[in-house]
Design a protein around this nucleic acid. Structure first.
Lengths: 201, 201
DNA sequence: CGCCAAACTTGCCGCCTGTGCAAGTTTTCC
DNA sequence: GGAAAACTTGCACAGGCGGCAAGTTTGGCG
C-alpha cells in the first residue's frame, strides 16, 4: 500500500542522501582543515563511502563543495522559469532575484561563513566561476525564449542580459561579504541590479 | 661594447623564449589531438624541455594554453592605464577597447580558430574564466582609482563597471564566433558595450 | 514470494599531475 | 676569472581521475 504521491523510490532517495552526505562531509572538513588540506579519500571516509564512490557522484572536491551553491542557483533558475512568459526579460530576472533573496530576511550566517571561506581560496575560484558560467548559459537560453526571435537575431542581447544579471549579483555578493553589518545582501544587490540594468529596462 | 638600450639580458630572453615555446607547443598539440588528450610531458617534449621545467613556467596545461589570451588582456589593461586620468571610467574602458580591437581590421583567423577550439571544450572553460576573473580585479582596481573615493564608497560601482565591461566583450566574442562572416568583432562588441553601458554613461 | 535485470558500490590498477629536494649547469656581476 | 645567483633536470612521493570486473542492492514482474 504505497502513498499516492509519486515517490522518488528508494534508489533515488539513497542516491540523493549519499550526494548530500558527501557534500556536507566536504564542507565540514574544508571548514575544519582548510579547503586544500583535505583529500577525496578523507571526504569519502567522513561520508561513509569508498573513495571510488565519491567519483561516481562528483568529478572532484570542488564540485562536492559547490554542490550547495549549485542547488541554490538552480532554485533561482526555477523561479525565473516560473515567471509570466510575457514579462519583459530583465524584469523577470530581477523579480526572480527579489523573490529569492528579498523574502528571507537575510542570508544564513553559517552559509555566509562558508562562502567567505571559499572566496578567500583562489583554488576554489575556478570552480566558483564554472558554476556561474553554466548558469549564464541556462539563463541566457531562458531569456532567448522570452525575447521574440525577431527582437534579438544574433542572440547577443539575451546573452548580455544573462551575463549582466549574474555579474551584478556576483559583484554585490563580493562587496556585501566585506561589510555584512551595514546592510542586507538584497539591499546591495538590488541597487547593483538597478544600476547595471538601466540599459535593459 | 654593448648597445646603450636596456636589453633584457640573455637570461631573461631565454626565459621568454622557453615560455613562448611551451605555449606554442601546447597550442600545436591541442589543435592536433584535442585539448584533453595531451599530457604535460608531451608538451615539454615538443618544446624540448623536461616535464619538471614545464612546471617552473606554468602551473598546468590550461595556463600554458591561455598564455596568449592572458597577454592580450594585459595589453588591453595597459591601454586602459594609459588613458587620461580625468576621463569618465566607462568611457576610458570602451575607448581602450576601441583602440585595441578597432584599429586592426579584424581578428587573426588563426587566432579565431584556436579560440573556437577552446570554447568548445568545457574542460578549458574554467581556465578561461579564471583569466577573466583576474582581469576583472585589475580593471576594477583601475576604475576605483579613477572614481573619486566619495563617488563609490562601497566599491560596488567600480567592480560593477569592470564586470559589465568584460561581460560585454566576452558575450560579443561568443556571439561573433558563431557568425564571423556577417560583421567584424568590433562591430558586435561596440554595440554590446553601448547597450550594457547605458547605466554608466 | 522468488527471481532476474538493471543500477550502484567497491577495490584494484594504471596513468597523469604537482611539488619539494638536491645535484648539475648557465648567466650575471664584481 | 671566479663566486653567487638563477635556472634545469631527474627522482621521489602524495594525490587525483577513470576503466574494469566482481559483488551487492533495488525495482519490477510473473
Amino acid at each position: 500500500m504505497s502513498v499516492p504521491t509519486t515517490e522518488p523510490g528508494l534508489r533515488e532517495r539513497k542516491k540523493a542522501a549519499t550526494r548530500l552526505a558527501l557534500h556536507e562531509a566536504a564542507l565540514r572538513l574544508a571548514l575544519e582543515h582548510g579547503p586544500d588540506r583535505i583529500t577525496v579519500e578523507a571526504i569519502a571516509d567522513e561520508a561513509g563511502v569508498s573513495r571510488r564512490t565519491f567519483s561516481n557522484y562528483f568529478a572532484n572536491k570542488e564540485e562536492a563543495l559547490f554542490y550547495g551553491q549549485h542547488q541554490r542557483m538552480r532554485q533561482v533558475l526555477e523561479i525565473i522559469r516560473a515567471r509570466p512568459r510575457d514579462e519583459p526579460p530583465w524584469h523577470a530576472l530581477t523579480a526572480a532575484a527579489a523573490e529569492f533573496y528579498g523574502a528571507s530576511g537575510d542570508l544564513d550566517p553559517e552559509w555566509t561563513a562558508r562562502t567567505r571561506l571559499m572566496r578567500r581560496h583562489p583554488s576554489l575560484a575556478a570552480a566558483q566561476m564554472q558554476t556561474f558560467a553554466a548558469m549564464e548559459r541556462e539563463i541566457g537560453a531562458e531569456v532567448t525564449a522570452r525575447l521574440g526571435p525577431g527582437e534579438d537575431p544574433t542572440g547577443v542581447r539575451a546573452k548580455l542580459l544573462a551575463a549582466t544579471f549574474l555579474a551584478a549579483l556576483r559583484v554585490a555578493l563580493t562587496a556585501w561579504l566585506e561589510h555584512p553589518a551595514d546592510s542586507t545582501y538584497w539591499e546591495v544587490a538590488s541597487e547593483a541590479l538597478a544600476e547595471a540594468g538601466r540599459g535593459f529596462a
